[in-house]
Design a protein around this nucleic acid. Sequence first.
DNA 1: ATGCCTAATGCAATTAGA
Length: 262
Amino acid sequence: MKLATYNVNGVNGRLPVLLRWLEASRPDVVCLQELKAPEDKFPEAAINDAGYEAIWHGQKSWNGVAILSRVGKPVETRRGLPGDPDDVHSRYIEAAVNGILVGGLYLPNGNPRPGPKFDYKLRWFDRLIDHAAELLASSMPVVLAGDFNVMPTEHDVYKPERWLDDALFAPEVRAAYFRLLDQGWTDSLRTMHPGETIYTFWDYFRNAYGRDAGLRIDHLLLSPSLADRLVGAQVDRDVRGWVKTSDHAPVWIELADAPSRC
DNA sequence: ATGCCTAATGCAATTAGA
């Protein structure tokens, strides 16, 4: 089973690139972030024509998350993280699909730091950590996939010394990421490629992709039973070089079939 | 310290991204 995450940076503006990538990569399940489209402007027909069923949580102008599947329609279990009824951002959607619980997330950017946006990021992270603990306690196979807006270590950013005060690399944000991981989650990409420099985002500015001045901020975290099934993880980095592309590249993992119970 | 680029909104210039 191939499961991917892709911050599309505008699902309608990105539709030709998204469809081209779906056709080329054929993931079974995809989490999308930054739809930048309201609920009624999601391109459902085009997604269906490509062979995928979808659920989504839209929002005008900003944010927005979706789960696509070509192995059965995702059965939605939650939209929005618990813990703050006043949070109106569309940043989390969760569904059961093909025997796995999939949490698709778009963690707040948090810049500038310090400030209210940074405070919101830390609060959102805490809510994610609380919810993730409940998911683990359920003993279900779970993947948390999306744009976490965190470079976990200095190996995940082209010039770490320049990012120390940034909301994507600040000590308290990295600490939150490892607090989450320490619950028992596996960082798929890092586990399959230890010690490798590997990025998932390149800024539109300054020819960042051409210079390979990238960040690794898109992650797929696996619960213990799924981690045992992890057999591959890659970034489709060529997609970042396509015309009218997102500033993120798709990231995917391959999971072996679940062991049969006897 | 800021702009460099891009998308959405809505039709100019602002906001947000990372």
